[in-house]
Design a protein around this nucleic acid. Sequence first.
DNA 1: CTGCCTAACTAACACTTGGTAGGTGCATGG
DNA 2: CCATGCACCTACCAAGTGTTAGTTAGGCAG
Lengths: 209, 209
Amino acid sequence: MADDTAGKVSEARRNAVGRDGVLNVAARLFREQGYGSVSLRKIAETAGIKAGSIYYHFGSKDEIVAAVLDAGIQVVHESMRQAVSELPEGTSPEATLRAAIGAHLRALLDVSDYTSANVRIFGQVPQSVKDANLPTRRAYEAEWDALLSRLQDDGALKRDVDIRRLRLMLIGALNATLDWFDPDRGSVEALSRTYADVFLDGILERQDT
Amino acid sequence: MADDTAGKVSEARRNAVGRDGVLNVAARLFREQGYGSVSLRKIAETAGIKAGSIYYHFGSKDEIVAAVLDAGIQVVHESMRQAVSELPEGTSPEATLRAAIGAHLRALLDVSDYTSANVRIFGQVPQSVKDANLPTRRAYEAEWDALLSRLQDDGALKRDVDIRRLRLMLIGALNATLDWFDPDRGSVEALSRTYADVFLDGILERQDT
DNA sequence: CTGCCTAACTAACACTTGGTAGGTGCATGG
DNA sequence: CCATGCACCTACCAAGTGTTAGTTAGGCAG
């Protein structure tokens, strides 16, 4: 954006794998094989680099996995927040929840190796790495809790459901799709609709007058 | 049961760790740390044995993890089948589904390290091991599909829901509890009821006459 | 007592792991 | 044209990996 002497940023620099290149590969491999089964050499080789070179960009394996974990949450969080904030004023509570569910599933299944890697490997990572990821995680959870509370206050959700538990159920159920979702068997949109259908008719207050 | 010369089966034999001892430890460690992060030496040490000794009972690491995986499914399968078959005749479809959900959650969260290990590590294990576990897995899935189909034929479930997808959603949602369920914050029974409540009111045909 | 059994043991193998130290090519700013 | 520094390289280390081979201690049937 700043230097456009000839539109070329130098071939060597362009071919560089770089920090982001390593991170992208790491996220994909972690998602596919789990934390403990992915070595730095595997990451390096896949990225087209030698193992030692990784230490130019990162101080340790833990630093890599921590970066992947954080990015994963940030991507869904941003996706979900944006989807909800983009809705026209006066959107129904039901449609709002549908939008949030759709955004979460899209980030998980369509968009981001980081988000899917996070879901897959969080449970396998050393405690210190988990702790480092917690604040980011809590922020996303808080976003959901705020949304659900708002819907509950509006009278759209049953008053006796516990928000925290509902959020855990909902996000857990959505994340579980990662284990079996196959884009060849149906779109994310359709899946998203099905999930919303099932959850809403169990969550929404019955209007049986 | 057969030899009771003095009620003692010989101290040496009683102190033996044995195949089951190794398997129990392996299941627990796999569940806690994932497949790739658990070495045979870690298993051996935890079991109170030396690494090489494991090869008296198992031919390879893959053989161990395959045994854990199979046992994991067999435990839930048996738990679920029994719970359903024990119901008195004429039990309502709703109560039947509640019983199946309860049995699955109990096996996963209360009873078995094997079942929880299966859920946690299946995605991280080499393809050949996955393949070996598939038949056992499919049998359990078929049990669920049969149950759900029966309920649908009875008119208890909406006719437009796809059984396969419903099963994937349901089991996925239940398995996800493994990541956050804390027995100090609520019983498995209560959790089971909540899940059934949410799912049923979205699944059961509306009786709004 | 003999001979076989089980369930371990020790020691080593070839290889992989995360991590470190120092060197190289090359585009760029001065 | 030269010094700077980025992005990578080679070469190595100690520790840990799955796995194998040979050995041993104790129990049990004949």
